[in-house]
Design a protein around this nucleic acid. Sequence first.
DNA 1: CGTGCCAGGTGCCAT
DNA 2: ATGGCACTTGGCACG
Lengths: 206, 206
Amino acid sequence: MRLVIARCQVDYAGRLTAHLPMATRLIMVKNDGSVLVHSDGGSYKPLNWMSPPARLREGVTEDGRVEWTVHGKDGPDGDTLRILVDEVLSDSSHDLGLDPGLQKDGVEKHLQELLADHPGTLAPGLTLVRREYPTAIGPVDLLCRDDRGSCVAVEVKRRGDIDGVEQLTRYLELLNRDSTLCLNGSVRGIFAAQEIRPQARVLATD
Amino acid sequence: MRLVIARCQVDYAGRLTAHLPMATRLIMVKNDGSVLVHSDGGSYKPLNWMSPPARLREGVTEDGRVEWTVHGKDGPDGDTLRILVDEVLSDSSHDLGLDPGLQKDGVEKHLQELLADHPGTLAPGLTLVRREYPTAIGPVDLLCRDDRGSCVAVEVKRRGDIDGVEQLTRYLELLNRDSTLCLNGSVRGIFAAQEIRPQARVLATD
DNA sequence: CGTGCCAGGTGCCAT
DNA sequence: ATGGCACTTGGCACG
């Protein structure tokens, strides 16, 4: 990994065009060729960047100024990052080696497993039929059966949003066309989330 | 901005928990206290991070090892990043100053403006009623009227995807309940995108 | 300030 | 490869 602190001006041309006026910034060049331009604030997103695979070429403009050109996977025809380097304040390289990678826990999958083990917490008498029940338009998170034998589709979300309700609605529509599932009345839906936005709740009671 | 290259192990606890085994990485500490942990690959997203405002405290564990603790906006009760620093290979600070900021061009808004100026390109005889027409469930990108006086709702997307079609369907359903808009027949919908995915096309012809 | 929605989204896993 | 979908999504604009 190469770290460069430099006064620079950056221009990106690709799916959109973006321009950064001359200022002092950090330019990070990773081993896979990807380039990140960071300022001293904002969030984790760089001001400008080039995703891997990418290739950096150090050149000089007609009037003798240092210019770095970064091309994306499509080469010179695709996305291009043009960095006009006015003054280099620091330039260092470091061998980091491969990263063993990240281990996550507590995302939706985990929540889904928890609910799969205890479907009764969603509604009394609910039992699990199958997790990730496959349909033509994607898997239903949990397919259950209530105490009267009716099918219940459960959509699990960490954040309950409008599109989550729609996802569930989409499944319900499809499942209700499947006569083998509607034996004991129509398929109901349960929207399970850690946090449900009010708008989503409104739509859900439709 | 402070840049540290170090062998470290990172643990995040917040909305989820995440663990990074011991390895050599870049730790970027920005002026606003935010911390980014980068490996030498992947894309612009850090392996772990803490969003601003944040505060870093350099401490020592019981058994004498160096441990950095980063707390988020909620202080010690909120998100926490724990960095166990095994060996510092490089540690430098740089004054970058304020960044003048990014100028973008060519995203959806631009596309929407273009279509708003030339609604006729969507369908012959189409005229614009209003851009960002407000409804209870969000603004319709473009509300138009065709040559027969019927209302036409237009949803503009850079990439035509399933949820875009659903967004439009949602609007159409709502608009068709509004009798003042259905004077000359029901409200039609047009899905305008630079690129339309086949699945979305299938759903759209429903 | 919440709420909705876009993003050069990125990443993960399925067919 | 392509599609569907979550994400510590982040970020912005508007009511």
